[in-house]
Design a protein around this nucleic acid. Structure first.
Lengths: 256, 256
DNA sequence: GGTCAACTGCGTACGCTGTACGAAGAATAG
DNA sequence: CTATTCTTCGTACAGCGTACGCAGTTGACC
């Protein structure tokens, strides 16, 4: 499975695509495909078969076209990915919870979580330079609005939103990987663990890790698997918002 | 750049490799390479040129051998990656800070951060099934010992360690991506932004995102770049440990 | 000391990737 | 009708992991 990068192409051409401002030509044959249609097909392939399977050939096949045809609509695969990103960001409901920053941040976290779960390939796209499309920008504005007017500085607002986004990214990544590894390997976590135990026993040295043994057993008994994503998400989000809360309280009552 | 997976091979063979318990044959020519030598070469390549460049051919070249020769030492690329993982985990100093869980967790976070910065390709390896080598197990034990005996349940201990690890992973990933995108694109963040502004202005609609505009400007002025990784790491870690602290305090004084 | 099994090194081949190039055909402006 | 512009897409290239099988080397055994 590949890691891909966003925002790598020529700004003018990328923005033209993202905001659908391509000039329509008057001459020549009518195009058989559309930008939206290609993006939808690419998202379909990535959702169903993963980002690694989303090759130009595969997407073109999906549309009954030749691979090189896609290059009439996108300068390259990077730009296609940029538009895919902005497109699925458009699926966020962006519900606003007024007057309660904690509930609002919670909503931001949960909507992002749903989006990642629906399109797990998002987790493999490095977005340090986000494609500046309409939905990417609306998403950022909505996220900032959750922590607007609660006493944080502008810089703290940005850091807080980034912190929550980073947290959700990591939590869902772990959960999705755990889900996918079961499919790929055909083994549950318990089966995987039981397949290792006899060999580990033979190697010995296990008594050197007493806390791991105790905690590992407890976690296994609790969730019947070494890792439970639902629990981990709730636990971490609560800790995180508690941490933010400490800052917000401090800001509203300094020298407290 | 590729995303890779750990723990995919046959448990018996993987553990044999990880714990260096391979039976030494008596007959046949003496092997020209060693497992340790191949792993060191692979780590060298991955550090210097990224995980995508770490192909079997490239590693073999590094050692002056043919690509297929590596398959005499490792069943496949996955197992090589597993041993690479366990090997670099061995670089952790695993310093113990007794009697102060917060300082101990802080140390865990910082040592992991250093490791990720030294071997950024670690960020691209999905480790939902960790290779159960000596260093992986010692790492987990050390991390758990940071939160041992402070009133958390075993399950909470595991969740807390996973939370901190997940946080560091995400924070460093963001930082490394930001660093790499500058190299790949040859543009600083400011240059990238300035290249987009004129086209965005032309498209208009920017007044629909007032908070983004204000916060973006503030962040840009503060750090002279849209993103400052040092600040983000410290800010997030403090929030996170504050959140954990709230739980610890609650556990030591229930009904408080 | 000769023989043979066991072992190592590695060349070749296959199907996959993104995309540069250019040929062939279609639609419209003049 | 012609010239221009725009479309589709076949071919080609270098690189990937690795299955297969051959050639050469070493040590155990008689």
């Amino acid at each position: 499975m590949n890691q891909e990068y966003s925002g790598s192409g020529d700004p003018a051409k990328s923005l033209e695509l993202l905001w659908r401002r391509r000039p329509v030509p008057t001459r020549g044959p009518k195009p058989a495909l559309t930008v939206d249609g290609i993006v939808a097909a690419a998202v379909r392939v990535a959702d169903a078969e993963g980002l690694a399977a989303m090759s130009m050939r595969r997407v073109a096949d999906e549309l009954g076209a030749g691979a090189m045809t896609l290059y009439r609509y996108f300068p390259g695969k990077g730009e296609l990915l940029d538009v895919m990103l902005d497109t699925v960001y458009g699926e966020l409901p962006r519900r606003v919870v007024p007057g309660d920053w904690r509930a609002a941040l919670d909503e931001v976290a949960r909507e992002n979580r749903e989006l990642y779960l629906r399109h797990p390939w998002l987790l493999q796209v490095a977005i340090s330079r986000p494609p500046l499309g309409p939905n990417v920008m609306a998403k950022y504005e909505w996220e900032l609005s959750a922590v607007e007017g609660i006493g944080l500085t502008d810089v703290e607002m940005d850091a807080t939103v980034a912190l929550v986004n980073g947290y959700v990214h990591g939590a869902v990544r772990t959960a999705v990987e755990a889900r996918q590894v079961i499919q790929r390997s055909g083994m549950t976590d318990k089966e995987w663990w039981l397949a290792h135990v006899p060999h580990l026993d033979q190697i010995g040295d296990l008594e050197k890790f007493p806390i791991s043994a105790r905690v590992g057993t407890a976690v296994g008994n609790e969730f019947d698997a070494p890792y439970n994503s639902e629990h981990a998400f709730e636990y971490g989000l609560e800790r995180l918002l508690d941490g933010v809360s400490a800052l917000v309280v401090n800001r509203s009552a300094p020298q407290g």
